[in-house]
Design a protein around this nucleic acid. Structure first.
Length: 885
RNA sequence: GGGCGGGUAGCUCAGGUGGCUAGAGCGACAGCCUUACAAGCUGUAGGCCACAGGUUCAAGUCCUGUCCCGCCUACCA
């Protein structure tokens, strides 16, 4: 007897098989191959620590696609790696340093970078081990890191190329400044968050008059940097004041009242204080009117000397308090009105960003964005789900210059050199030898590039670009990119633009954007909310396959998918079900081994075998189709339903009966079907399928030795023809069995009691089928004493009845049957039938329906009505019999 | 302010191009340790498909409007 444990224990086998796959090199892709290529580059996880639930989903789906294509015989590459993730990683390191009582400035750039590399080495290894626990079949020999030497060359090459094309330039402009991180950030990195603030109404006295101009602001402290007040040129209230000056309270400065169309007369007081150095709109107004840009902040969000002596050194928030207090004391404050408004926060540290004028490096992405739009319109890239295409276009069409320099240390330093003797700026791969002016003295730009710049090159930098490598020739453009929709702009869009800019070709053919994992309340899971599921804990508790199955199972194409714990439990139960189906088959196989020589195949193939093979074909077709369309939930659902509710619930029960009749062929068919299911399930549940695959017999005539070695490299099943006749016949048989069970259940027939079954049917073919098979099948499902099948049959006294079209089932239950219960049961059935009849009649009585609906639809409806009418008549007769007895 | 997604069983969700009597998982209730599985088996209950119109022979599905929920975007101080 095989000593398979009754309960599937994932811990026992997962590590073993992963090592087995690695040692057989199954995950390795060839640089050149006759096979058609299939490639995915992993969205490189940040080296900030552990994988979260989003990674688990993202990588499960990728692995699913990768394993599927590997089985389809493609030269399959899953390129793994990690991202240096500039600002976040630095922030965490700074925290560590603070705990050690030091800081990045104290230890200096060189030491700091050293520490970062140390951390990277530990962290990347940890991430790899987690991906491996998830079962990810990446080509680990090719693992990359965005700061690798090779990728650094790619970054410099791309930068220099784009610089020489004039797309990268240096400029002074207003950017989002994070006073906490001391760096400029792009618009995407700024999260607008609604906060409860105030509208501060302030009097600005108009010079040489006794009137005052009332302005309203949410940021009173910025008045210290005001260099004008603006009103709308058509605003009758203020027209006469245009050109006059006001005295800026607290500052002892005079500023001019200007007219600008930007001002909204309806909003606030219709008079707008203008702070060109600290507000984007004011900046634009300032340029139009040639206003002074008066900077009053330090880079860390404090007030500088230009804010005035009494405020210098205060934080932004302390200064606001003091300004308001002073305004009040000096009689300038009119009122404070609560006002809810959105304020930009840096998404990495949650600090309120400060619009600031700053000298930065920018990339003019518009030309590349236009190419990206064009390429997408031509169908070179498709987005799944399709709605993402619109989001993509909208963003691309309204794209703004991308500030790419960051005042940080961890990342790619811009390959820009400044001559120390003249003004010359050079972009080059390395330090220039000699400047135009003859000097050999240069210094490199201190800033590093936005992390997303190097991530944007990922699909080709990982394959050795700018070298013309075999990998690039074979795998670029890659097949699909899998990611969450939340980084469509951050990353996906930039990869497309940079791919076009550097490779002249899009980086991937399909973009599959899956949903984000949410809890039961629809809240996105995140560590900070405390509602996240830890992948490793989950794997430990439920097993990887159960977890992966659950993730796929909830992956419907909606923006937020809920992953209740019950789903993962369901996955575990499913794994256990698979395990036990295999266990049953393997245990019985010891008693009935598959003969080495082919047995005589002339005999008739039993109905249940025709049926399960037909259903298997349907399953293969549906699963393949679902995978082709990235419908992972359908993959999961299809396989679950087939294995559990067709194979286990019915076929194995049939097979048990066959076995007890000493007909082992049914078991051997079960082996074949199970083997096919293992293939179909493998992309989703790699471990359990491998474990079972290894235990299943693979007779010499069944598979080649390669395929036998591992399900990882077994061919993906191809569907043959379906068998609708067998399916229809089996359906009738199953209905008969269901109805018998239902009668027994509803009338509380004791489990042990064997019953006589009388079946009456005018259809000779059905009778023949029932006679052939029911005797075989029925005992597998219920205790039965005798089966009588006839064309006409009187209803036995005190019997329960079920009606399936023109077929009737009677079960005599004298002594057991409670007439009232039976009456209730039949009445309920009758009522339902009457309702259905009425609905069908209504449709058929409509002449337009007969006229305009397709023939087959009309025919179907007629059949339905006929069947229902027969059932109704039978039920009515039985009910009247019950009433008179 | 614009745009997108969602509202179907107690809960989480399926229901490509309209057409079998609207489904699944979980949960609930009742009964079973039937020698693969109690992480199991069997049976039962539970739905005005958000609301109001419209198109159509036919609407959960398409159109219009309304109401909720969520999200993405936007320079109203």
């Amino acid at each position: 007897m095989t000593s398979l444990p009754k309960i599937y224990d994932p811990q026992e086998i997962e590590g073993k098989w992963y090592q087995f796959w690695l040692s057989n090199n199954y995950f390795h892709a060839e640089s050149t191959s006759d096979k058609s290529p299939y490639a995915i580059v992993i969205p490189p996880p940040n080296i900030t620590g552990s994988l979260h639930i989003g990674h688990a989903l993202d990588n499960t789906l990728q692995d699913c696609l990768i394993r599927w294509h590997r089985m389809k015989g493609h030269n399959t590459l899953w390129m793994p790696g990690t991202d240096h993730a500039g600002i976040v990683t630095e922030l965490i390191m700074e925290q560590k340093l603070a705990e050690e009582g030091t800081s990045r400035n104290a230890i200096g750039r060189e030491k700091f970078t050293e520490r970062m590399w140390q951390w990277k080495d530990e962290s990347a290894g940890y991430i790899v081990s987690q991906l491996q626990q998830l079962g990810c079949s990446c080509d680990w020999e090719r693992e990359r890191f965005t700061l690798d030497a090779g990728l650094s060359i790619a970054v410099r090459t791309a930068f220099v190329k784009l610089y020489n094309q004039g797309l990268i330039y240096r400029d002074t402009y207003m950017v989002n400044w994070c006073p906490n991180c001391h760096t400029a950030v792009s618009n995407l990195e700024v999260e607008p968050i609604e906060i409860d603030g105030n509208f501060y109404h302030i009097h600005y006295p108009v010079i040489d008059t006794d009137i005052t101009l009332e302005i309203a602001t949410t940021r009173p402290e910025t008045m210290l940097g005001d260099t004008a007040v603006a009103v709308h040129p058509d605003d009758e209230r203020y027209q006469h004041l245009i050109g006059k000056k006001v005295l800026l309270p607290l500052c002892d400065r005079e500023i001019t009242i200007i007219a600008d169309e930007y001002v909204d007369t309806e909003f606030g007081t219709g008079a707008l204080k203008v702070t060109p150095a600290h507000d984007v709109n004011d900046y634009e107004i300032g340029l139009r009117h040639d206003l002074e840009q008066r900077n009053i902040f330090t880079t860390d969000g404090h007030m500088n000397e230009d804010a005035g002596e009494r405020y210098t050194g205060l934080s932004r928030w302390d200064c606001r308090k003091k300004v308001v207090e002073d305004l009040k004391n000096e009689g300038y404050l009119v009122k404070i009105v609560p006002h809810r408004h959105t304020v930009g926060h840096h998404d990495r540290c949650n600090t309120i960003v400060e619009p600031a004028i700053s000298l930065q490096w920018f990339m003019n992405v518009r030309p590349l964005a236009e190419r990206a739009i064009e390429a997408t319109k031509k169908g070179e890239i498709t987005f799944i789900p399709e709605r993402e295409t619109a989001r993509f276009y909208h963003w691309m069409e309204n794209i703004e210059p991308w500030p790419i320099s960051r005042q940080r240390w961890w990342g790619h330093r811009l390959p820009i050199w400044y001559c120390n003797s003249c003004e010359e700026v050079t972009a080059a791969m390395d330090t220039p030898k000699k400047c135009k002016c003859g000097s050999t003295d240069f210094h490199q730009e201190e800033d590093v590039l936005d992390t997303w710049f190097s991530s944007g090159l990922w699909p080709f930098s990982t394959m050795g670009w700018p070298e013309e490598t075999d990998e690039l020739k074979t795998f670029y453009p890659t097949s699909v990119l899998v990611s969450g929709w939340d980084i469509l702009f951050f990353w996906v869009a930039r990869m497309i633009m940079l791919g076009l800019g550097c490779m002249d070709e899009v980086p991937f053919r399909h973009v599959y954007l899956h949903g984000l994992v949410a809890d039961e309340k629809g809240q996105k899971m995140s560590k900070s909310k405390g509602n996240s599921i830890d992948p490793l804990e989950t794997i430990e508790k439920y097993g990887t396959d159960a977890f992966r199955f659950a993730l796929a199972n909830v992956s419907t194409p909606i923006p937020y998918v809920a992953l209740p714990e019950a789903q993962i439990e369901s996955g575990r139960r499913f794994a256990n079900k698979i395990w036990n189906a295999a266990r049953f088959i393997l245990m019985n196989l010891e008693k009935h081994p598959i003969p080495t020589t082919d047995t005589d195949d002339n005999e008739q193939v039993p109905l249940e075998v025709q049926w399960i093979q037909s259903r298997l074909n349907y399953t293969i077709k549906t699963t393949t189709d679902a995978l082709e369309n990235f419908r992972f939930h359908e993959v999961a659902h299809t396989l679950y339903a087939f294995l559990w509710h067709e194979f286990c619930d019915w076929y194995i029960e049939f097979a048990k009966q066959r076995l007890s009749n000493d007909e082992p062929k049914a078991l051997w068919v079960a082996v074949d079907v199970l083997e096919q299911i293992m293939r179909l399930l493998h992309p989703l549940m790699p471990f359990i399928t491998e474990e079972i695959w290894q235990q299943l017999p693979h007779g010499s005539q069944r598979n080649s030795s390669d395929e036998k070695a591992s399900v990882t490299v077994a061919p993906w099943p191809t569907p043959s023809t379906e068998n609708p006749t067998a399916e229809a016949t089996m359906e009738t048989l199953m209905k008969v069995i269901d109805n018998i069970r239902s009668i027994r259940g509803e009338l509380n027939v004791p489990i042990g009691a064997a019953v006589d079954v009388h079946i009456q049917s005018p259809n000779a073919e059905i009778r023949e089928r029932l006679e052939t098979y029911l005797g075989h099948y029925l005992p597998a499902f219920t205790r039965v004493e005798s089966i009588t099948i006839a064309e006409t049959l009187p209803k036995p006294p005190a019997s329960a009845e079920a009606v399936i079209g023109e077929l009737a089932i009677y079960i005599p239950l004298a002594g057991v049957i409670d007439l009232e219960t039976e009456k209730t049961r039949l009445t309920k059935r009758h009522q339902q039938t009457v309702k259905d009849v009425a609905a069908a009649q209504k449709t058929l009585e409509n002449p337009n329906f007969i006229e305009r609906a397709p023939e087959n639809v009309v025919a179907q409806k007629r059949d339905l009505l006929d069947r229902l009418l027969i059932e109704q008549g039978k039920l009515e007769r039985s009910l009247s019999l019950l009433n008179t007895s």
